[in-house]
C-alpha cells in the first residue's frame, strides 16, 4: 500500500491532541470504542453559541495508528465547520482521504461515531441550558 505523505504526517504528528473542560456548556464530548481491536477514542468540540461554528476540536485516542490518524484528520476537518456541516462528515470521506486498507476501515467508522457523539452531547447540553433558562 502506498500512503500519501499527508497520511503519514497525521500518524506521526497527530494534530489537536488533548482535552477540554467537560463541564463547559459549549463543549461536547464523545467517547467511543471499537471492540474488535480494543481502541478507545475521546473527541471534543467547542462551539461558539452565537455562530454555531466549531472553534476548537481536541482528541485523545488509545489505539492503532489508523485510529489515531482518523481522529486527527477529523479534528482538523471540524475546525470552522457548523454543527450541521460536521454531522455530514462520513467515514468514507476519511477512508478516501487516508486510503485506509479494508482491515482498518472500522477506524474511520470510529471517528465518524466520535464526531456524532460529541455533537449529540453538545446539543443535549444546549437543550438542557435552554430548558434551564426557560424554567427561570
Amino acid at each position: 500500500m502506498a500512503y500519501s505523505n499527508k497520511v503519514l504526517d497525521h500518524y506521526n504528528h497527530p494534530r489537536n491532541v488533548g482535552s477540554m473542560d467537560k463541564s463547559d456548556p459549549n463543549v461536547g464530548t464523545g467517547m467511543v470504542g471499537a471492540p474488535e481491536c480494543g481502541d478507545v477514542m475521546k473527541l471534543q468540540v467547542k462551539v461558539n453559541p452565537a455562530t454555531g461554528i466549531i472553534e476548537e476540536a481536541k482528541f485523545k485516542t488509545f489505539g492503532c495508528g489508523s485510529a489515531i490518524a482518523s481522529s486527527s484528520l477529523a479534528t482538523e476537518w471540524l475546525h470552522g465547520k457548523t454543527v450541521d456541516e460536521a454531522l455530514a462528515i462520513k467515514n468514507t470521506d476519511i477512508v478516501n482521504e487516508l486510503s485506509l486498507p479494508p482491515v482498518k476501515i472500522h477506524c474511520s467508522v470510529l471517528a465518524e461515531d466520535a464526531i456524532k457523539a460529541a455533537i449529540a452531547d453538545y446539543k443535549k447540553k444546549t437543550a438542557q441550558n435552554a430548558d434551564a433558562v426557560a424554567a427561570n
Binding site: 492503532c64 495508528g65 482491515v103
Partner: peptide, 29 residues
Amino acid sequence: IETMGGVVSKLIHRNSTIPASATESFTTA
C-alpha cells in the same frame, strides 16, 4: 502485511500448525 504508517497487520500467527492459511480483502484507492 504492511498497512498504514508502516505498521504490520498480522494474518498468520507464529506457532500456527502448517499448512496454515488466511484470507484478506483488498480494495482500490
